[in-house]
């Protein structure tokens, strides 16, 4: 969509231009290790690309040969039946899968052209630029203020108290929760409602100045009204961030996403249920004129 502005990114921070954080701008942050100059792009290189990605849990192959190209400033949705590996794929995009001892990712995942699975890449640095929002809201059992500032601090934020306040306000503003919490920043993040907690978690994720936010079914624990607010928020955030969202709710994918990836389960000869990417196309196209029969079956409810 707004790809022109971000095409030949050399430094991620320049991409953060629209972020209204005068005081919390990258100078206060340490050098970015993950951002490198992209190769001269032949086609539209996205912010994150996967090439021939296979993911295993021990000897079980959870997903097979995934090739995805997530564009800048777009919302991409991952849909598919339960167990097809949506979360697995999402977690591999910022190396959260590393936390599962048996998990193993093969193939290449590039972020701004750099393979995040290359030897020598520290997953800690990757996660700072590719933030994550989880299915169940999981604020830290600390004050709302601490929830936001902690991520910045551990990533080397050296601003003054006033600049820290600005950073917190800005993140909460962007996450559309500032008005609700501005008078109780010192109260526990756990004192908020589920929907507020989830927006707090989004604010926390964007406070470390990422440019991609991964969301794994962020609304599945929320009521419809809270869900609506998060969806509105995602459309807002799209201007500054690339968002990749896993959802089991097809309407949600249709409402918010620009592109949708449909995954399906393939039964192998040995009876293993391996997830496969069926198609990754613009959302309006996927829901009106899917290329594949499997997609059509799924979205029309004839699945299974």
């Amino acid at each position: 969509m707004t790809n022109e502005t971000t095409k030949d990114l050399v430094d991620v921070s320049s991409h953060e231009g629209p972020v209204e954080t005068p005081s919390a701008q990258p100078p206060a942050l340490p050098d970015d290790k993950t951002a490198v100059a992209t190769e001269p792009a032949v086609e539209r290189d996205g912010v994150i690309q996967t090439q021939n990605m296979d993911i295993y849990y021990g000897s079980f192959k959870a997903v097979h040969d995934v090739n995805l190209n997530f564009q800048f400033n777009e919302i991409s949705a991952l849909i598919g039946p339960s167990g097809c590996g949506k979360s697995t794929v999402l977690r591999s995009l910022n190396r959260m899968n590393d936390l599962i001892p048996t998990a193993r990712t093969e193939g290449v995942v590039t972020y701004h052209g750099e393979n995040i699975y290359a030897p020598g890449v520290d997953p800690v640095a990757v996660r700072r630029r590719i933030g994550m929002v989880f299915q169940k809201p999981n604020p830290f059992p600390k004050s709302i203020y601490q929830n936001i500032i902690w991520g910045a601090k551990i990533n080397g934020f050296k601003g003054s108290k006033a600049e820290a306040d600005d950073l917190v306000e800005n993140a909460l503003q962007q996450a559309a929760i500032w008005d609700e919490v501005k008078d109780k920043l010192q109260e526990s993040g756990l004192s908020l409602s589920g929907g507020q907690q989830q927006r707090l978690c989004i604010a926390r994720a964007i406070a470390t100045q990422p440019d991609v936010v991964l969301m794994d079914e962020p609304c599945s624990a929320l009521d419809p009204i809270a869900t609506l607010r998060i969806e509105e928020l995602m459309l807002e955030l799209k201007q500054n961030y690339s968002i990749i969202i896993v959802t089991h709710n097809m309407q949600q994918a249709a409402r918010v996403s620009d592109k949708t990836a449909f995954f399906n389960i393939e039964l192998s000869n040995e009876g293993q249920r391996t997830g496969e990417l069926v198609e990754f196309t613009p959302t309006d196209q996927l829901f009106t004129a899917p290329k594949e029969k499997a997609t059509e079956d799924y979205i029309t409810g004839r699945f299974g």
Partner: peptide, 27 residues
């Protein structure tokens, strides 16, 4: 201590020790 807390810490780019020290241990 719920694992979601560890994921939250690591998810914002904290190291394991930072997460343990600031989020897991206090709980």
């Amino acid at each position: 201590v719920p694992n979601s807390l560890r994921q939250a810490g690591l998810g914002v780019g904290a190291t394991k020790w930072q997460t343990v020290r600031s989020q897991v241990l206090p709980v």
